[in-house]
């Protein structure tokens, strides 16, 4: 009996899942190369241009500007501003300023694209139950798949450098924006939706004048989560050649160089804290 069961396990030969995935990626690459190639070229050029621009500004200006904005969004308190000054100066002091600018650009572009793609999908999901049923497992899949796995097709589609880094970050980081946009819109109270309808709103008017403003805080929480996930991809993306602080970490890992790794790690944490506080300030409600 047990034998029979054992045979049953072996009855079906190994499914060539891996080679299917290979083929799929190859096909996608061939079919969509007319999209991927220009994206690869132009996005890369754009990001390098951006890094140059930001890099050309004297760091002291940037540090002061960040501190000023921190002071403003934290409700005229000095804590975050002081932290920004000390933190950014430390990064500069350690000779990692250029890497910081590179990482920041990566985070900014990947986050922007995530929002541009994520919010509309979230709206679609909120408006259409079938879309929700289909997208929920897809989002689960995207979030649970180890982030490293995305690097492989990313490199296949876009080569190495910034662009595959953005692509991999996007896939890994977009789900919270989609989910929380969906949730935020679905949570708008029935009475407000009824009020919008009762006064003769078109679906678009209802969405832009009532639902999105009501869901704003929730959507912003999702965007904040997305940005944090993008930040966590900074190190991983360096494995396929994305420049920045992550590359310092990988390099330290390869050379078993504890000190360099620690400094680069601390720099990422500083960037993360500042970006997190700033993106929490987006929802417009100032504390204190």
């Amino acid at each position: 009996m047990l034998n029979f069961l054992h045979d049953l396990l072996d009855f079906i030969p190994r499914i060539p899942l891996a080679s299917w995935a290979d083929t799929t990626i190859d096909v996608i690459k061939d079919v969509f190369s007319f999209i991927f190639n220009p994206i690869s070229v132009y996005l890369r050029a754009f990001m390098e241009w951006m890094v140059d621009i930001i890099g050309a500004v004297p760091p002291i200006f940037i540090i002061l500007l960040v501190a000023l904005y921190a002071f403003y969004i934290s409700g005229k308190k000095f804590g975050l501003a002081a932290f920004s000054i000390v933190g950014l100066w430390l990064i500069y002091n350690q000779g990692l300023w250029t890497q910081l600018v590179q990482s920041f650009t990566l985070v900014l572009i990947a986050s922007l694209l995530s929002v541009i793609i994520g919010v509309p999908f979230g709206i679609l999901m909120a408006k259409n139950n079938i879309a929700q049923t289909i997208m929920k497992p897809v989002l689960d899949f995207m979030q649970t798949m180890p982030a490293f796995v995305y690097l492989i097709p990313a490199a296949a589609f876009f080569g190495i450098g910034y662009v595959p880094g953005v692509f991999a970050s996007l896939i890994f980081a977009v789900p919270p924006t989609v989910r929380l946009t969906n949730l935020g819109i679905r949570q708008v109270s029935t009475e407000l939706v009824e009020a919008a309808d009762a006064f003769g709103s078109t679906p678009a008017q209802k969405l832009f004048k009532v639902e999105l403003p009501m869901a704003k805080a929730t959507i912003m929480a999702g965007i904040n989560q997305t940005i944090m996930l993008v930040l966590s991809m900074v190190v991983i993306a360096s494995l396929i050649g994305a420049p920045g602080l992550g590359r310092e970490v990988t390099r330290a890992l390869q050379g078993a160089n504890v000190g360099t790794g620690f400094v680069a790690g601390i720099s990422i944490v500083i960037l993360a804290i500042i970006v997190d506080r700033f993106s929490q300030g987006f929802d417009g409600k100032k504390k204190g």
Binding site: E191, L192, E194, A195, V210, P213, M214
Partner: peptide
């Protein structure tokens, strides 16, 4: 509306 239905 019963609970006013105003947009906050």
């Amino acid at each position: 509306f019963q609970k006013f239905g105003l947009f906050p």
